[in-house]
Design a protein around this nucleic acid. Structure first.
Length: 490
DNA sequence: TTTTGGGG
């Protein structure tokens, strides 16, 4: 023993030496020594204890023969980055497989970045991965520690009391132990976890599939997305509206009792989902009994980034310069001001068959404009030959004459909101109908008249902006509806 | 308590 020499060389402070020896003795009595993940022994199958930062976990699930399993991925300072530092895509991690006789003996992990402590695990290689196995029904045990000040439950608002940093928020069995020397281990790992989660993605691109690619997945896959809306389906289930950085929107059902911690606006990782091939009206992900929905620590770099990057359509509209309630952008001539409004559905689906409507040729209708064609404003006006009734593009022409507008509004209203049809209302001014629509600005060669073109581009922007409505009088000719007696009011 | 099942 090397200590003998040291002790004798310090004979000048007998007291201090004795105290130290006593302390060392006491420390030796500690029951649990902890190994770093990468340094745990592979050879002996011996029982080992470790702390790990959780980066993935299944929900506890039942196997064929009355056994329950939870499998997790964990990292620590000794084992986390695969390949070279930083952007290296791919985590290095150890897996943990916990076996139990009962569901309640396994951890329900709901947050990436929290810490698990396992006692009496054995390590082996499985598929080239370091895999810790722990049988809770024999003598293994686990504890979950919060890395944030708040536990996941407290974070979600179901707050109960203060969180003591050395007290696990979940643990197996009736009691947990916490030895003095663990305080430093836990607090160091917390610091490291916090730093790791706030400075790197942790959930790397090899750990999930972008939503615009999931259709071609054969089996199950994982997802990284933001919950942009939660719709309460019934007393048991929520429907989550999910969007990821590919801007695809998918829906999934989440049982309230299984996932009580998720909130609208959360960035989540779904461990294991499949495409619902039977869904027809919208894109739906199916979850299994072993699927899990995990949130991130509050200071997660990845979650922060995605929260800022992904928005629902309403957010997007609200982000524009003018955040406004419904606005009507036009007015109809005085003589039509008391005329009733006919919904688009009646105009396009019922007008021909309805005995009353079929007699009419002029209607007043309200709609929003989803798109204007031609997309190039310079092509909104044409040269019109009255004899041949032909309209030609003014592209490449210096002057020209007989200018008219030929513009198509792609429109929607409440009566047509839920179908996928596109309805067109025309602003064609060859017979004079609608000639004053753009505040009296007459058609001209928009390839050369920059002032007029710019004005029309402004109008296009307003007409297609969120929640803006057109109140218009239209005349039916040959099955088409042409705007007349209507002009912009701004 | 078991070579469990492990991306189920």
């Amino acid at each position: 023993m090397s200590t003998g020499k040291k002790a004798s060389s310090r004979s000048t402070s007998k007291k201090g030496g004795a105290q130290k020896e006593q302390k060392a003795k006491a420390e030796k009595k500690q029951k649990y020594d902890y190994v770093e993940l990468a340094k745990a022994s592979l050879t002996s199958g011996e029982s080992q204890n470790f702390y790990g930062v959780i980066i993935d976990a299944t929900f506890p699930y039942k196997t064929n023969k009355d056994k329950y399993i939870c499998s997790l991925k964990v990292v620590d300072p000794s084992q986390h980055i695969k390949g070279l530092k930083g952007t290296g895509d791919g985590n290095d991690y150890a897996t943990v497989v916990l076996y139990a006789k009962e569901f309640k003996d396994l951890p329900i992990v709901s947050r990436i970045g929290d810490i698990i402590r396992v006692h009496r695990a054995t390590l082996r290689l499985h598929n080239h991965q370091r895999q810790f196995n722990a049988s809770i029904f024999f003598n293994s045990s686990w504890s979950l520690f919060s890395t944030d000040k708040k536990t996941p439950a407290q974070e979600a608002g179901g707050a109960e009391g203060q969180q003591n940093e050395n007290v696990p928020y979940q643990f197996s069995g009736k009691h947990y132990t916490f030895e003095k020397h663990e305080g430093a281990i836990l607090s160091n790992l917390r610091k490291w976890a916090s730093q790791y989660i706030s400075s790197s993605n942790v959930v790397t691109t090899d750990m999930y599939v972008p939503l615009n690619k999931v259709q071609s997945e054969k089996g199950d896959f994982d997802v990284l997305a933001k919950i942009i809306h939660i719709h309460e389906l019934d007393e048991y289930a929520n429907e989550l509206k999910l969007k990821d950085t590919t801007n695809q929107v998918w829906y999934t059902l989440a049982l309230k009792t299984k996932f009580p911690h998720i909130r609208s606006g959360d960035v989540i990782r779904i461990r294991s989902a499949t495409v619902d091939e039977t869904a027809t009206t919208k894109k739906v992900l199916n979850l299994s009994h072993y699927s899990n929905i995990l949130t991130f620590l509050s200071n997660s770099k990845l979650a922060k980034e995605l929260r800022g990057k992904i928005h629902d359509d309403h957010d997007k509209a609200a982000k524009g310069k003018v955040q406004h309630a419904a606005v009507v952008l036009t007015e109809v001539d005085k003589k039509w001001q008391n005329h009733p409004i006919t919904p688009l559905h009646e105009l396009f689906h019922e007008a021909d068959n309805d005995p009353e409507l079929s007699k009419e040729t002029t209607f007043r209708t309200n709609f929003t404009v989803t798109k204007i064609e031609p997309v190039d404003v310079r092509e909104w006006s044409k040269a019109y030959d009255k004899k041949t009734k032909k309209a030609t593009s003014l592209k490449g022409q210096k002057g020209g004459s007989g200018f008219i507008y030929q513009v198509q509004f792609l429109v929607k209203d409440v009566s047509t909101l839920l179908n996928n049809n596109t309805y067109r209302i025309l602003l064609y001014t060859h017979d004079g109908l609608g000639a004053n629509f753009f505040n009296g600005q007459q058609a001209s060669n928009l390839h050369t008249n920059d002032a007029n073109r710019k004005k029309l581009e402004e109008y296009a922007e307003r007409l297609t902006s969120f929640n803006s409505w057109v109140d218009a009088v239209v005349e039916k000719r040959n099955g088409f509806y042409f705007i007349k007696d209507t002009k912009l009011n701004f």
